[in-house]
Write a protein that binds this DNA or RNA. Structure first.
Ligand SMILES: NC(=O)c1ccc[n+]([C@@H]2O[C@H](COP(=O)([O-])OP(=O)(O)OC[C@H]3O[C@@H](n4cnc5c(N)ncnc54)[C@H](O)[C@@H]3O)[C@@H](O)[C@H]2O)c1
Ligand SMILES: NC(=O)c1ccc[n+]([C@@H]2O[C@H](COP(=O)([O-])OP(=O)(O)OC[C@H]3O[C@@H](n4cnc5c(N)ncnc54)[C@H](O)[C@@H]3O)[C@@H](O)[C@H]2O)c1
Lengths: 210, 210
DNA sequence: AATTTCTTGTGAAATTTTTCACGAACGCTT
DNA sequence: AAGCGTTCGTGAAAAATTTCACAAGAAATT
C-alpha cells in the first residue's frame, strides 16, 4: 500500500494532497509563486499544521520564513500521487449519468482520460455529441487487456452492477469508481471508491438539522 | 452538532448508518426478517464490532442470540438520521451533470425530492424530459424562502460556484452538495459536502499503483 | 553582520476512531 | 426448567489521526 520507501501515508492525507494540488493550480493561474502553509491551508479548508504534517510524510519542500514554491510543491505532490502522466480510464454504462461524465472536459486537465465507453446497448448512444466510442460489452475484456486499462467508472443500474464489476475485475481492472448505490464485493487487491449521492444528501440533512 | 440528548455521534458513523439503511432495505426486499450483526456488517463492508458500536451510540435494538429485526432497525436508523420524512432539495446549474441528476428517479425512494432547478439560462432546458421546472436565477431567493428549502445541489461551472453558493446561503440554504471542483467558503453553520470525481480517480490511481 | 521577523518541520500530547474481549441475555432444545 | 449455543452490548485497549508547542532555519531589516 505504501508508495515510497519511506512511510505509509494515511488514506486521508492522500485525499487532502489531491485538494492541495488543485488549490496550488489555482494559485499558479493567478500568478502567485510562493505560498505559506497558512494561506494554502486556508484555501484547502484545513489547519496549517495538518497541511505541514501531510507534506512531512513524504518530504520537506518549504523554505522557513518564506513558505512553499507553488510550482515546485505542485510537482512534488503530483509525483507522489503518481498523477504526473495521463491515465486511461474506461466507463461502463452510458445512461443519463454516464453521458454527462463522458461529455465532461474536466478530467484531462487533471490527468485522466476516458478512452472508451461500454454499454449493453451501444447503438442507442450513436447520435450524442461525445468523442469517445461506445462499444458493446462483449468487447470489454479484450479492450481492457489490450489497452492495459486499470481503472473503470461504473455507472450501470444497481441491479447489474455486481455482475459488471465481476467481469471488470476478471479482465484486470484494479480500481472502480462506483456510482451504483450498492456495496460491491471485490477481491482484496481491487479498490472501490463509491459515490453515493443519496447518502451525501442524507448526511447533509442530518448535520443541518441536528 | 449532536442529535439526541445522548452522545455526539461521530461523522463516520452517520455515514455508515446510511449504508446500513440501504443494506437493510435490500434485505427486506428479499423477505429477510432478522439479521445478525455479522451478516449485516458483511453486506455493508464493515466489521461486526463496528456495526454494533455504531448502533450503540443511539440505542440498543438487537436481541441477543438472535440478531436485529430488519424492519425495526430500519425504522430506528431512519429516525435517527431524520430521513423519515421527504426532504425538498433544489438544484442549481442545469448543464450536462445537472440534467442527469434531475432525470434520476432514485432520490425519492431515499427520502429526497428535487422540487425545482435553477439556471442562468433557464430557457435552454425547455425541451428536456424532466419533470421539474427550470427557473431563472432571479427567482432563487424567493423560492427558497417560500418553500423553506434547506438543501441545494450545486452543479454550476467552478468559476461561478462561489458566487452562486453565496446567494444560496444568503437565501437560507444550510447544506450544499457541491460538484464544482473548488473549495467553497461558507459560514460555519452551513455544511458543504463535496463530490469531486477527479479526486476520487486520483485516489484510486494512487492506491492501485502503490 | 547582527537582529528581527517569519514560517517551516517535528516529536509529543491530545483526540478520535477502531478493534478486542468477554459478560450478559435470549431463544431453542431436551 | 435447565442447559446449550448464539449473538448482542460495552468497557477497555489499541490504533490512527489531529493538534500542539516550539526549536530551527531562512529571509528581510537595520
Ligand atoms: N443519473 C443520476 O443522476 C444518478 C445519481 C445517483 C446515482 N446514479 C446511479 O448511477 C447508475 C446509472 O444511473 P443512470 O441514471 O445513468 O441510469 P440509466 O438507466 O440512464 O443508464 C444505465 C445504462 O447502463 C446500461 N446497462 C444496463 N445494463 C448493463 C449491463 N449489464 N452492462 C452494461 N451496460 C448496461 C444501460 O443500457 C444504460 O445505458 C445507477 O446505478 C444509478 O443508481 C445515477
Ligand atoms: N459533467 C460532469 O460529468 C462533471 C464531472 C465532474 C465535475 N463536474 C462539475 O460539475 C459542474 C457542472 O458541470 P457540467 O458539465 O454540467 O457543466 P455545464 O457547463 O454543462 O453546465 C453548467 C450549467 O450552469 C449554468 N450556469 C452558468 N453560470 C451560472 C450561474 N451564474 N448561475 C446559475 N447557473 C449558471 C449554465 O447555464 C449551465 O447550464 C462543473 O463545476 C463541473 O466542473 C461535472
Amino acid at each position: 500500500m505504501k508508495k515510497t520507501g519511506r512511510l505509509v501515508i494515511p488514506r486521508k492525507t492522500i485525499y487532502r494532497l489531491s485538494i492541495y494540488l488543485r488549490c496550488l493550480a489555482r494559485l499558479k493561474e493567478n500568478g502567485i509563486g510562493t505560498v505559506s502553509s497558512e494561506a494554502l491551508a486556508k484555501a484547502a479548508g484545513v489547519k496549517p499544521t495538518q497541511l505541514r504534517k501531510d507534506l512531512a510524510y513524504f518530504g520537506t519542500f518549504g523554505t522557513r520564513g518564506l513558505g512553499y514554491d507553488v510550482t515546485e510543491l505542485s510537482k512534488k505532490i503530483a509525483e507522489e500521487l503518481g498523477t504526473s502522466s495521463l491515465q486511461p480510464v474506461i466507463l461502463v454504462g452510458v445512461g443519463n449519468l454516464g453521458l454527462a461524465l463522458l461529455s465532461y472536459r474536466g478530467f484531462e486537465k487533471e490527468g485522466f482520460e476516458i478512452i472508451a465507453a461500454f454499454d449493453a446497448e451501444p447503438r442507442r448512444q450513436r447520435d450524442k455529441k461525445i468523442k469517445q466510442p461506445v462499444i458493446g460489452m462483449e468487447q470489454l475484456p479484450e479492450f481492457i487487456r489490450e489497452h492495459n486499462v486499470k481503472m473503470a467508472i461504473l455507472s450501470v443500474p444497481a441491479a447489474v452492477a455486481q455482475t459488471v464489476a465481476n467481469s471488470l475485475v476478471e479482465s484486470g481492472i484494479m480500481g472502480i469508481l462506483n456510482f451504483a448505490p450498492i456495496v460491491l464485493t471485490v477481491p482484496e487487491d481491487v479498490m472501490v471508491n463509491n459515490v453515493n449521492l443519496a447518502i451525501e444528501l442524507e448526511n447533509l440533512s442530518y448535520f443541518i438539522q441536528g
